[in-house]
């Protein structure tokens, strides 16, 4: 009976928490939130998973290799948006170039969304990486011990 209640609750909440993180990610322009917060909430879903099922299980779901790639990819995504605007003829991170004809600044909107996505990916993967490395050095905590 190793923490049945916790396991059931975590299973129930896991997908909704991830969805909440993505909601915060994509509604950064309309309400509070954005990439930083979304990345952290995303990581929290996996923290919960690790608490209830053990770190080894979590590493199977989201291996360290994927996180390392995501860390770099997120940062590159941000910087790449800037380079893309340069290639389109503007300054670095001048989002208006993405859609210069738009009358309601759609280019700025898309640019912000792209950049926030890069932030979110980097933050989520970095937080999980640090978590893996801090807790992964200890032998896993026995379920009966808490």
């Amino acid at each position: 009976m190793d923490h049945l209640i916790l396991k059931v609750t975590t299973k129930l909440l896991f997908a909704p928490i991830i969805l909440f993180a993505l909601y915060v990610q994509f509604h950064g322009d309309y309400g509070p939130g954005g990439g930083f917060q979304a990345g952290v909430i995303f990581a929290v879903a996996f923290f919960l998973h690790a608490f209830c099922f053990g770190l080894a299980e979590t590493k199977k779901v989201l291996p360290q290799k994927a996180l390392t790639i995501a860390m770099v990819a997120g940062l590159m995504f941000y910087a790449g948006t800037g380079v893309a605007t340069q290639l389109l003829g503007g300054n670095f991170l001048a989002y208006t170039e993405i859609d210069p004809e738009s009358t309601h600044h759609a280019g700025q909107h898309y640019g912000i969304l792209l950049v926030e996505w890069g932030v979110g990916v980097t933050v989520a993967s970095t937080m999980l990486t640090i978590f893996y490395h801090f807790t992964g050095r200890e032998p896993d905590i026995d379920q009966e011990d808490w």
Partner: peptide
């Protein structure tokens, strides 16, 4: 300039 309702996001990202 940006036409995004949340000014904080506009400042932060643009």
């Amino acid at each position: 300039d940006i036409a995004v309702p949340n000014i904080v996001t506009a400042v932060l990202a643009s």
